[in-house]
């Protein structure tokens, strides 16, 4: 029988990799941001899982980290989507392939 902590960690790993697959395989910037969100949430699952099932010393650090992480993710998605809109205004597309200004 698999332990609950392991189950949570596996869930978060799978969630992380679904997000990663989204970032790697999709060429739409919004979808890539969605993938990043999923990866961040996978991290949150880990925080909560370790808080719930880890060794307990009366601390609330796991919950606190999750809360701060959610706040930071909110900031990230706001800036990210603003960037997407800015890019869209410049190249009239949300495809990442058109954005290759980093090319040397």
């Amino acid at each position: 029988m698999i332990q609950p902590l392991h189950a949570c960690l596996i869930l978060s790993s799978l969630l992380f990799c679904i997000g990663l697959a989204g970032v790697l395989a999709r060429h739409n910037t919004i979808l890539m941001l969605i993938g990043v969100e999923l990866m961040l949430n996978a991290a949150n699952v880990n925080f909560i899982a370790f808080w719930r099932y880890g060794a307990w010393a009366g601390q609330s650090a796991g919950v606190m980290f999750a809360i701060f992480s959610i706040a930071v993710a909110a900031a990230e998605i706001a800036v990210g989507l603003a960037l997407v809109i800015l890019i869209f205004r410049h190249v009239r597309t949300t495809s990442i392939d058109r954005v290759d200004g980093m090319k040397g």
């Binding site: 990663l20 970032v23 392939d97 040397g104």
Partner: peptide
Amino acid sequence: SSGKLSLFQNGKAQRYLCVIG
């Protein structure tokens, strides 16, 4: 000198990410 190195950098963010992954 970096002109030569930049051939590895094709500007596609996803390619970089793939390599990192």
